[in-house]
Design a protein around this nucleic acid. Structure first.
Lengths: 265, 265
DNA sequence: GATAAATGTTCGACCCTGCGGAACGGTCAG
DNA sequence: CTGACCGTTCCGCAGGGTCGAACATTTATC
């Protein structure tokens, strides 16, 4: 699970949250499984579970602990928090219907890439949710599209924080490669991945920005590489660029009618 | 926030989770706001936030803390965990398209009612997510539909745990009223609410069960009372009952093709 | 440019509280 | 009846969470 620097984190809370990860990983776990997985005493696990249950994060059904529906509600809240997320959702479904590939909108958070909309089945598998190695900025095309717009200092901060672990054999693993790639992305206007995040997958991503240059996130198209030949790739790129325009115009209209600038509220 | 019995809960974890609630309630909070809201020392809040951030539960953008996208992912996972949830989702969208009202699927969890699908805008407001008073079993028609199928002892356990607080002036507030209502629900085959959960809202709910009698949850229709006259109410009830049949048949087919009984995995 | 207010971060000491181990009650299977 | 397992409670110990203060940074206001 790869925490980089445990200094200053509260061990009790960390233990509780680790328990959540374990339940996720085991896809529902019994108490003795959790005792074994964590190495803690039964009474300790019990106390953590009781606390998590009290807040609705964990439920116990038939002697098995599962994640609670609170995550659904909070997830829905997060997804609808910013108004431009709605524009993103509309753009994604448009893109999804127009394209033969899978559409997606992703943002950078804490130096990692998270997908907000999109029906990537594999993305729901517990392994990816916990480990999340395919969601580094340097392996995903969304990530490359986004950080290509960032100042170099911020990119370096992210690299320092998370490193450059490889997700596949084709992943970028050195700073030089990465900065060269980012220059290409800026020049070309979109980012491209050939199996760098997921073996055999081809993907393109384009950052969308506010008029002031703030990066909202990245619109993406992805799919198995063998289904897209050279010709269709060109049309997919075109589609992606039209989607980006749609999004930015949609956001512009949103904030124009409100006569206010986008803020973080 | 109404925790009933703080015995045995870990105060450190509880403080962290309470911080999440506060961020939710304030719709994004700055550090000093959180210090004021919790009454803790700044360094303590800082430690909690750092821990939560380490696990992706909160993010800091422009000196404001927000809930992280981890909730989206975990929420998606919870929503797709059980296979019959997919059937529920399909049934809800069918119901939504057929009906003029809002469709919804809810389950009982830990003695409270949680809505898994459905586009109730107000349900995403922070106030409801935290307080959740409209989501008690005795005020929602989903809740009444579900616990009407439970043995009396389990109903009493839930009442002991959460009490019978009123959500509106029309809410049920005594055990006698509740058990009389549940008898009516059983007899009639569905539950009905007239402003008991939300002022001015009319809603109906019907529990769906496995062949063995296990309650999966409740399908519901709801909407402003003034748009539904006596006649349309009858047609809505009919729609709801057809939806329940669709669901139960869909689940039956699901487990038949798998030649296995529904289990909790 | 200076001042003030805000955040992010660190440090040390007190003592609260989380932890482990054991023990008990309840349930289910053989 | 006997195990096996889960949930729960109790208690003593020491690990670590909490507070308060101090400092570095940034943003804002004059």
């Amino acid at each position: 699970m790869n925490r980089h620097d445990p200094s200053g984190v509260l061990k009790t809370t960390a233990a509780s949250l680790a328990l959540v990860d374990h339940i996720l990983e085991l896809e529902g776990a019994t108490m003795s499984e959790l005792v074994e997985a964590t190495g803690l005493a039964k009474s300790t696990v019990h106390a953590h579970l009781k606390t998590l249950a009290e807040y609705g994060y964990v439920v116990n059904v038939d002697n098995e602990y599962h994640l609670g529906a609170k995550f659904c509600h909070l997830g829905d809240y997060v997804r609808t928090r910013k108004e431009y997320y709605r524009v993103a959702q509309e753009t994604v479904s448009w893109l999804d219907s127009e394209s033969s590939m899978d559409a997606d909108f992703a943002v950078e958070e804490h130096g990692r890439i998270v997908s907000l909309y999109g029906d990537l089945e594999f993305a729901n598998s517990p392994r990816f949710l916990i480990d999340g190695s395919p969601f580094h900025v340097h392996t995903t095309c969304s990530g490359k599209a986004i950080i290509a717009e960032y100042p170099e200092t911020r990119v370096r901060e992210i690299i320092d924080r998370w490193g450059l672990p490889a997700a596949t054999d084709d992943s970028i693993t050195t700073e030089d490669e990465l900065f060269a790639e980012l220059a290409t992305v800026r020049e070309r206007g979109y980012a491209e991945n050939s199996g760098e995040a997921v073996e055999g997958f081809w993907a393109i991503g384009k950052a969308v920005k506010s008029p002031r240059g703030e990066v909202y996130g990245s619109l993406n198209l992805s799919g198995p590489a063998y289904v897209v030949d050279e010709e269709t790739r060109a049309t997919q790129v075109e589609l992606l660029e039209r989607a980006a325009e749609r999004f930015e115009q949609g956001v512009a209209e949103l904030y124009q009618t409100q006569a206010s600038e986008p803020n973080e509220e």
